[in-house]
Amino acid sequence: MIQQYWLYLIYLLGSVFFIVGLKMLSGPKTARNGNFLAAAGMAIAILGTIFMHTNEDGEPIGNYGWIFGGIAIGTVVGWISAKKVKMTDMPQMVSLFNGMGGACAALISLVEFGHLHDDASPATVLTIVAGLVIGSVSFSGSIIAYAKLQEIMKKTFRLPAQNILTLVLLIATLGLTVYIALGHPSAVLLYTVFALSLAYGVLFVLPIGGADMPVVISLLNSFTGVAAAFGGFLYDNQVMLTGGILVGSAGTLLTILMCNAMNRSLTNVIFGSFGGGSAAAAGGGSA
């Protein structure tokens, strides 16, 4: 029990480091130290979880080989790719890493869905499925944003009736999410939602032009934050909740600030040429 309280203390410290780090990141003189501070908060939160976390039955974390193996692979690949990327290619790198975080949240939901008991409350199911949906949208959207900025995908695609199609997809995804939560937790439906969310992420980003991509990445960034926060709800994990929501709210504000800096509105960026392609094209060109 006392070990769990230590972990709570570590999570509290980690959360404070995140907040102070984020604050320092928004000032030019303190930004670099703020980044270090946030990284330190992350490190203690991760180490604390590995060595002190126990589940509801009081069982400690196991499978150390898998965990350290995964962390080692992720660290080496992440470090090298972050160090090697050209300065001009950094936005798409951020997008790619953001997509990884979204995919991570989605995978967590997939596994936890398999662990659900029959008596699981709708709220728990909703938490899991919402994490899956937001994480998947963030993942597929980020990958498209990456592909566009990296110029793997050069053209701006626009399907016929794009906005209507996207809207229908969104409504279908949300409707099915609620349906599953209200007592129909079948794996088939879950994978359908998974596929719909991935498709939504793709359709959401496809029509947006390259110049607006940083705004979209920032928006997807805040999505992943929210997905992480759902994980926090699922595990009663305070640091995941604080970290996730901080990014969710700060990221949303940042998205709006970025739009303002470009003299555009968020709806204008997202729905682009809704009803008038020329205005959006002109805006995108000048930004």
């Binding site: 984020l22 980044n35 991570c104 920032s218 934050g225 997905a227 994980g231 995941m240 990221g251």
Partner: peptide, 18 residues
């Protein structure tokens, strides 16, 4: 700042570890 916030939501790793 966007990039820093991006790293912070990596806290989702804790869920993965669990």
């Amino acid at each position: 700042l966007m990039s820093g916030a991006n790293a912070i939501h990596g806290v989702v790793i804790i869920g993965a570890i669990i």
